[in-house]
Design a protein around this nucleic acid. Structure first.
Lengths: 139, 139
DNA sequence: TGGTATAGTTACCAGATGGAGACTAAGCAG
DNA sequence: CTGCTTAGTCTCCATCTGGTAACTATACCA
């Protein structure tokens, strides 16, 4: 992989690495997995039970991606039936705080979001136009 | 944000509201739109140009969802051709910091992630098993 | 007469996503 | 001999996603 050093990392550019890295963690399950691994190692089946609603397939997929990105460590014990333990790498642990900030935000603003949604849904089609229609034709 | 009360709302439950709120902002474009609106209002076309790679359809969709969730305000000026201005609501502005934290993380750990990826891809199929195979049959 | 501008909406369609369920290994309990 | 265990993988298939292109309104400009 050509490590092109981006002196000015413009996150608004599609090919910007920092944007690509951001997308790695901005998905459905990754934040939850990080949070679940906060307290140490966990086996696959434990994660599956802990994270309600995730399927076996998605958990595997998410963990593989996180492992590839250096966020989690995967340790396989060659026994039968298999034992596999997952834990956050030091890099993954640095994500713990940012993810927690997001979760705390979500919790703190539950009602505001819910209220905004019902308001929006009731308003439905009402225009809400600006009274300052002083703006005219462009150019 | 020293008050972390993750006790009552269990984010690991699928029906938990805080989880649903979290999913609202954990998508491809929402963080970028928030960041783009940091400095004030922006017109639709300006956002479209600023956020490289987003399509008209996705931008509309993202903005509508954000408006419904109370994150952005949409002001329509009834002129022809249309003028529509978007800006962050006070609620949306409280998301600015969490989103920035994520972006800074992404920038700060670019190389580590990239390095982890190449290492993983080269290792490919090598097992990397635990030497402590002392674990035996369960139950 | 026709082209241009903005902020969408709609229809169409290929490709991605993701769930369900079957299948596997190796050893042990019954 | 059967069934149970775990951590997946694999196939099948329905749904979702998202891009592209065409279309709209109204006023202005050449």
């Amino acid at each position: 992989m050509e490590t092109k050093q981006q002196t000015s990392p413009d996150i608004f550019q599609a090919n910007c690495l920092s944007r690509q890295v951001l997308q790695l963690i901005a998905d459905q399950w990754t934040p939850l997995v990080i949070y679940a691994l906060e307290d140490g190692t966990m086996r696959f089946s434990h994660l599956l039970k802990r994270i309600d609603g995730i399927s076996k397939k998605m958990l595997t997929q998410t963990l593989r991606a996180m492992e590839r990105n250096g966020l989690v460590q995967r340790v396989v014990y060659p026994v039968v039936p298999p034992v596999v333990e997952y834990s956050l790498t030091p890099l993954g642990q640095t994500l713990l705080e940012p993810v927690k900030v997001l979760q705390i935000w979500a919790y703190d603003h539950l009602q505001e979001v819910a209220h905004a949604q019902t308001t929006y849904d009731q308003r439905d089609q009402r225009p809400l136009q600006a009274e300052t229609a002083s703006l005219v034709q462009q150019r």
